[in-house]
Each structure stands twice: as structure tokens, then as C-alpha cells.
């Protein structure tokens, strides 16, 4: 059960990706919640254009890992760099860096007092300083891309969960992020709405977006991931291509996990 530290196992042309193309690098990251050691010596490198799916049992630290990448969770030791720049302390620098890292949350977190269109325009106008007209055009085209263009003038509470999550993806895309973090994006959705969100994510993956996806959707991991990272008890237990991982997991912990979720 040795962690496969820093090994970048990727599909196809990405195989020979040089180190210069590493977009997100976590090295020796540790974090505690009180006495609980939630992240233990995490080493993980995500290359530009790569889709990394993080799976594992509840409480394994995968959401925390995802949230450390844009410093919504601070770390106790180790280092995280995005596009060669180490994560700065809270402040202007960090805000600038966060603008380049999109995030999609489990509970959508659309701004409840703003319309769908305003949600997608806000970051462009206030952070990117885009003029209003351009921001609106871009917002509308992104909403069209995720299939909710007709809902632009509604408030988030008037939309279904699947629609809200697609708006959240559009909101992240509006910032032209280098990488998008998905923190269990379908876990709060009714089963019938999961696919509409996954389809949008599949499309993003095909378009070459760099994605870190924490999920329980094994189907998505199989079809869209370049690499599966399996976490348990705060450690990265196994990293492999989806084919390798699902058909031939090496660690006992992963075998146990897969036997519980895949046999029926």
C-alpha cells in the first residue's frame, strides 16, 4: 500500500508531458483537523489538460485535498504550486490566483440574491474588469453551452439542482480558468439530474480543460479520467489509469472499496 507519489500516469499523447507542463503540484502536504490527520504526506502532480478523478470512501480527505488547491483550506506543512507559483497567503495575490482556478461545489453555492446571468457575469466584471456588454455576451454563450440559456433571468432557487450545477460550471468557465476543481459536483443531485451535469463535464474534458474531480461517479471516472487517484484515511493509496484501477486494483484497500461499490 505504498502511495504512488508524484507519478503521472496519463493516457495517450499526454504520456510524455514534460515537467514544465505541470499545472498543479502538491508536495508533501499535511493537514490536521484537530487530532485528525486528514491529509498525510500528499504528493500529487496534475499536468495541463489532464483530467484527474479523486475517489475514495467518505472521510478519506478527498474533498479537503480538492479545497486546499485554491486554499479554501489551509495546509499545515508542505507546498502547493499552481502553474509554477506557490500559493500565497490570504490577500490580493491569492485572490488573483484563485481567479485562475475554477471551483464547482457539491451544494452549487450560486449567489442566491443574484440572477443566473448575474452569477456568471459577476466574476468577469469585478475580478477580470471586463466591460458589462462583453461579460453579458460571454455569460449568455456559456449558459447556452451548458444548456440553461433560457433560465438566464431566473434566480438560483427557481432552478433544479442539475440546472444550478450547470450554471455553477458556467460561472467557473467565465473566468477562463487554467484548472477547474469539482468537489463532489453530483452528490447533492437527484439521480435523474446527475447525467446532465456529467455530460457537461465530459464535454469539458474532451475540450482539453484541466480538471480535478472528486466524485463517487465511477462511470465518469472510467470514461473521462486520464488518471484515477484513490484516497483512504488521508493518504493517496493508489494512482492509475481508469482501466488499470477498475479492472486490476493493486492495493487491498482499493479492492475492498471497489468490491463494495461495483458488484451490484
Amino acid at each position: 500500500m505504498k502511495p504512488m507519489s508524484g507519478v503521472s500516469v496519463t493516457k495517450g499523447a499526454e504520456d510524455a508531458a514534460p515537467a514544465a507542463d505541470d499545472l498543479v503540484v502538491l508536495s508533501n502536504v499535511n493537514k490536521h483537523f484537530g487530532a485528525l490527520h486528514v491529509l498525510q504526506d500528499i504528493d500529487l502532480t496534475i499536468a495541463r489538460g489532464e483530467v484527474v478523478v479523486v475517489i475514495g470512501p467518505s472521510g478519506s480527505g478527498k474533498s479537503t485535498l480538492c479545497r486546499t488547491i485554491n486554499r479554501l483550506e489551509t495546509i499545515d506543512s508542505g507546498a502547493i504550486a499552481i502553474d509554477g507559483k506557490p500559493l500565497p497567503q490570504e490577500g490580493k495575490e491569492l485572490a488573483r490566483l484563485r481567479a485562475d482556478v475554477g471551483m464547482v461545489f457539491q451544494s452549487f453555492n450560486l449567489f442566491a440574491h443574484k440572477t443566473v446571468l448575474e452569477n456568471v457575469m459577476l466574476g468577469q466584471i469585478k475580478v477580470r474588469r471586463t466591460d458589462k456588454k462583453a461579460a453579458e455576451d460571454k455569460a449568455r454563450s456559456l449558459l447556452d453551452r451548458v444548456g440553461v440559456a433560457t433560465q438566464a433571468d431566473k434566480y438560483p432557487a427557481q432552478l433544479s439542482g442539475g440546472q444550478q450545477q450547470r450554471v455553477a460550471i458556467a460561472r467557473a468557465l467565465a473566468m477562463d480558468p487554467k484548472v477547474i476543481l469539482f468537489d463532489e459536483p453530483t452528490s447533492a443531485l437527484d439521480p435523474e439530474m446527475i447525467n446532465e451535469v456529467l455530460e457537461v463535464m465530459q464535454q469539458l474534458a474532451r475540450d482539453g480543460m484541466t480538471m480535478v474531480v472528486v466524485t463517487h461517479e465511477m462511470g465518469f471516472a472510467r470514461s473521462a479520467a486520464n488518471r484515477v487517484v484513490f484516497m483512504a484515511d488521508g493518504k493517496i493509496v493508489e494512482e492509475a489509469t481508469p482501466d488499470q484501477f477498475f479492472s486490476n486494483p493493486r492495493s487491498d484497500r482499493a479492492k475492498d472499496f471497489l468490491s463494495k461499490i461495483l458488484h451490484h
Binding site: L72, K92, L97, A99, F111, A112, V127
Partner: peptide
Amino acid sequence: VPVGQAEAARALGLSFTQ
């Protein structure tokens, strides 16, 4: 106001005052 609202706003790159 749910914590997620502030987190989503910070994730977009808004400053504390924003």
C-alpha cells in the same frame, strides 16, 4: 448567509471587501 456563498465568492477571486 451560508458559508458556501462566501467560499464561492472567494473562489472566483473576489477580495474580502468585495
